[in-house]
Simulated assay, not measured.
Amino acid sequence: MKKALLVVDYTVDFVADDGALTCGKPGQVIEEKICQLTEEFLNDDELVIMPVDLHEKDNPYHPETKLFPPHNIRGTAGRALYGRLADIYEAHRSDIIWMDKTRYSAFAGTNLELVLRERSIEEIHIVGVCTDICVLHTAVDAYNKGFSIIVHKDGVASFDQVGHEWSLRHFTATLGAQVL
């Protein structure tokens, strides 16, 4: 079965101590697992996609504007990939698909499904942040589109531990995903 790795929103704003909407330590702890999986998928010639949140400065029309502080603003350092993942991306830029997204789900308003279907991808591995927001919504859409889902427990994190734990249960109980 052909598979792809989705590395969701692993950026400075979501992970660094001074990030605008940071998971902090829980997000930092998963860095090595995310990097290890990214390198493993690249070494196996499997597809790696990095769906990354994109917001415009002072956009009053985006629904997140009322819910969260400004984050992942176009052209800011906060939108850069966090830690060693940035180096991996630079070294393998031609082998990794960067995908701007403007909603929680990596499928909403992007060509993600088309990219996966044209490569006959059936199994999606998901890592990144936040477990209970963008990872969850991406997994729900993947389920609704008929993909097999694997969430790597030690590769996801949130700033809300209760939401994180609830999402891990939801992945298996409601979406039929494997949580490894």
Rank of each mutant, 00 (worst) to 15 (best):
L37I: 09
E39F: 01
F41Y: 12
L42A: 08
N43Y: 00
L47I: 07
V48P: 07
M50P: 01
M50F: 09
P51L: 00
V52G: 00
D53S: 10
H55G: 03
H55L: 07
K57E: 13
N59S: 05
Y61G: 07
K66T: 14
P69H: 07
P69W: 02
P70I: 02
H71T: 13
H71I: 13
N72A: 13
I73E: 05
T76F: 06
A77D: 15
R79C: 00
A80H: 12
L81R: 03
L81I: 04
G83W: 10
G83D: 13
G83P: 10
L85N: 11
A86V: 06
A86P: 08
S94N: 15
I97L: 12
I97K: 02
M99S: 07
K101D: 01
T102M: 05
R103N: 02
A108C: 07
A108Y: 11
L112K: 10
L112A: 09
V115G: 00
R117L: 08
R117A: 09
E118L: 14
R119C: 06
S120K: 15
E123Y: 08
I124W: 05
H125P: 02
G128I: 12
C130T: 09
C130L: 11
I133F: 12
V135E: 02
T138M: 06
A139C: 13
A139F: 04
A139T: 06
Y143H: 15
Y143E: 04
Y143W: 13
K145N: 08
K145Q: 11
G146Y: 09
F147W: 09
S148P: 02
I149Y: 11
I149W: 12
V151G: 09
D154I: 12
F159N: 10
Q161Y: 08
Q161G: 00
Q161F: 08
V162L: 10
H164M: 03
